[in-house]
Design a protein around this nucleic acid. Structure first.
Length: 164
DNA sequence: GCCAACGTTGGC
DNA sequence: GCCAACGTTGGC
């Protein structure tokens, strides 16, 4: 198992990590994503058990605020064809779904969020996709090295990768 | 709240 | 198939 690491963004005014903590089983369907590259990660890339960093965007101090894990792999996002959906897409149907989601379960809320401004200052994080100018992807892979560094900055110890 | 950057749409 | 127009994202 042990697949890739990921990061998802959310505007806390819409859905925060504290909201996730209040959900049944602290689990939420990560629906409403309407970008093809992010869709591909949701549908094909994210595997059960993968760690997923939770990022708060569009606030004064954007930050990685915690960690989730994938508890259900990609399946069709029914919010696309629900009339009351915040992100309707009439082109997507139950017969031919376009958009996909996973289910994420909360694992950790960081005691100290890892601020974007501190990521920018960190010599080991310069190549992270999150920091690239103009990046708008709301679901993205995170390299193991970047993942470990972020957990380190959050003050959380992570076992080194097992050889076998 | 502003605005640059980006992805998508649709006229041609 | 180009590209202008548009809507959205997200740092600041």
């Amino acid at each position: 198992m042990s697949g890739n690491c990921w990061l998802v963004k959310s505007e806390p005014d819409t859905f925060s990590i504290q909201d996730l903590a209040l959900r049944p089983k602290q689990t939420e369907g990560w629906d409403g994503v309407r970008n093809y590259q992010a869709r591909n990660y949701l549908r094909d890339g994210m595997k059960k058990g993968d760690p997923v960093l939770f990022y708060h965007s569009r606030i004064r101090q954007p930050a990685i605020v915690g960690l989730c894990s994938v508890v259900r792999e990609g399946y069709p996002d029914a919010s696309a064809w629900h009339r009351d959906s915040a992100h309707p897409d009439p082109k997507s149907t139950p017969e031919n779904p376009i958009w996909y989601q996973v289910d994420l379960r909360l694992e950790i809320i960081f005691k100290g969020p890892v601020l974007l401004e501190n990521l920018r200052k960190d010599s080991q994080m310069q190549e992270m996709a999150l920091l690239k100018k103009g990046n708008r992807l709301s679901v993205m892979p995170v390299s193991p090295a970047h993942y470990r560094r972020i957990m380190e900055m959050a003050g959380i110890s992570v076992l080194p990768e097992r050889n076998q």
